[in-house]
Amino acid sequence: MASNFGHIYLEEAAADYPLTAEICANFPAAQRINIRNYRHFFNRPNQDYNLQKGGLKLILAVKRDDLLYRGSPECQDFNSANFYYNTPLVNCVYDCEYCYLQGKYQSANLLVFVNQDDLMAAVTGQIPRRPEAERPLLLALSYDTDLLAIDNRIPIFKPWVEFARTAENLLVEIRTKSAAVAGLKSIASGKNILLSWTVSPQRIIDLIEHFTPALDRRIQAIGVAIEQGWQVRLSIDPVIHSEDWPQLYLAMIERLFTRLPASAIHDIQFGPFRINENYYRRLRRARPRSLILMQPLVVQDGIVSWPPAQQTELRKRISDQLSRYLPDEKIHPWQI
């Protein structure tokens, strides 16, 4: 993993929170730097995202505004008006070359908000105000990070699971690529919590999903989660274009379902690489030699993605392969 967290930048206002003490205790050797406002450190101009990935710092701060966001069109939201996301933690210990975070934020450093209770209160407050009363509020909890990957040292996952389990009219999705599922044993699962595992062919993992667990370890972790009663969604997203993408991805799907019980999979979503045009510009600057840039890409309505004909082919080929294992209503392709 890229993280070493040799430095903790501690915002004045965050000093007295219990989560601050808990996290600091997990990094006893870290250099502590007291700062007035996290933005002064996090939003500095001209930071080098990729260099920072090699020596991540931890920032502990209080989130004062934007405690809950409406979902954006690039997200896989199943056309739900009830789709929201929040950012209990910003940035990730993994380093996927396609990650939109490098376009979104100036800094790669891990920003942890220690006032998780305020974020939870914002969700509780929004549930009765959700646009579609007949459906639950759908909350994507970890779009801007991988909570499970760092749960042993930055314990945010468990409190959210406990919060979600007791909440009414709430469906929480927690995305991960982690294989660290040992901790799941001590947490009771909940029917309204979806653990959503992103899977990629091993070659793609080797080339562009740096520091993430191998495909087989992820499959093993998914198996453990299923055994322990967690609801598991699979996510083949983003699909990265290469000359042999169909072979790579179709073989991976076969591998998934020879090792996992299809009937236990809640559903599966997939989609081509896509990114907001402005984020793409920054990604291009940050990783000029990335495989990501070698894909055939076009801009449509401000989103950079595969050309439409290839997207159609992707939808057809992946759907066909998935329908060998799952009913259609469990297969969700992403569409613009």
């Binding site: 930048y9 730097i33 007291n34 700062i35 450190f41 920072q52 020596g55």
Partner: peptide, 26 residues
Amino acid sequence: NQIIDTSTGRCYYPDVLINHDLPENT
């Protein structure tokens, strides 16, 4: 690792990305 400009209150932060063995200070 932190420079405080006492006349303006502004702070500057060099990115400490090298693996050095010096103690650090504000």
